[in-house]
Design a protein around this nucleic acid. Structure first.
Lengths: 147, 147
DNA sequence: TTAAATATTACCCACACGGTATAATATAAC
DNA sequence: GTTATATTATACCGTGTGGGTAATATTTAA
């Protein structure tokens, strides 16, 4: 319940992690990725679109087309991907939405969560997608859930 | 949007922080707290009830009654309060809900968020409500928003 | 020309969160 | 004993939004 990382964000990271484990610049059809990673295709379509708009990925249209990483996977951070997806989660709304708390300017609760969130986002920035790459030999371990 | 700390949790922490700044064992009427901290009263009522059920606070009924901390504020952690409120947020649902990700057992994404969440909750455990206490002289700084 | 891929837009639905309403119960003070 | 002021308890509601679907257009290799 109530995830900081929405499904949408998680799927975006998964897609990028998969691409990071493939040969660079090789376009992979979304349909294939979708099956391997168990992402609903129409949903994946929307996500792929956002990633492209933010230049995280690039696509090749038409038959034999597909999607590939437009950035160096060693430099592409989790935070980059979240931002591409218009990341808007927060640990506590009081951090940004000042009018929900009367303790303006000195609230220790506010400060505590603000600091925690900063640290968290810093870690998201330090973590690169290359570190999370999904490799082919990993994929073989996937339990086949098809009927 | 999409806070890890729901309003409910934030209010609960605020109430406890306020009580931690008062004389121990002195029952304070919710109605007073509610005004000072800008919490809708019926909502505060529900929250107070949960806190009491978890023995974080205790109450005195009847006229001149109120609520007070039932624990040593130096030992009462943010995590304790969250648990009292049936905390159910997570950084990423994939951490607990295994069937939403086919990469069972070895997924680096899963592991990354699991570790981040552990660290976060550890910090919530280390932070005690005494550290966040709302003192009277702080309250004087509150901007009066009444009309 | 066709098949297979992405691009784009519009739509839907369930559910949880924040909040409200109401009535019951307890008790200190007079 | 009565009253005013608390907490207790339960039931209800509206709206936003997250997750997902549908349908169609467009591109391009074969």
């Amino acid at each position: 319940m109530n995830p900081f990382i929405k499904r949408e964000y998680d799927y975006a990271i998964r897609i990028c992690a998969y691409l990071a484990g493939q040969k660079p610049d090789k376009a992979i059809p979304l349909s294939r990725i979708v099956k391997l990673l168990a992402i609903p295709k129409p949903f994946a379509t929307k996500i792929a679109h956002k990633l492209k708009k933010a230049d995280v990925t690039a696509t090749v249209q038409g038959k034999n087309g597909g999607i590939y990483l437009a950035k160096d996977s060693k430099k592409l951070s989790i935070l980059d991907i979240l931002k591409a997806m218009n990341f808007d989660s927060t640990l506590n709304e009081c951090i940004y939405h000042h009018d929900i708390c009367p303790l303006v300017g000195f609230c220790h609760i506010h400060n505590f969560f603000r600091d925690e969130e900063r640290r968290l986002l810093k870690n998201f920035e330090n973590k690169k997608i290359a570190d999370l790459a999904i490799k082919m030999n990993d994929m073989s371990k996937i339990v086949n859930t098809n009927t």
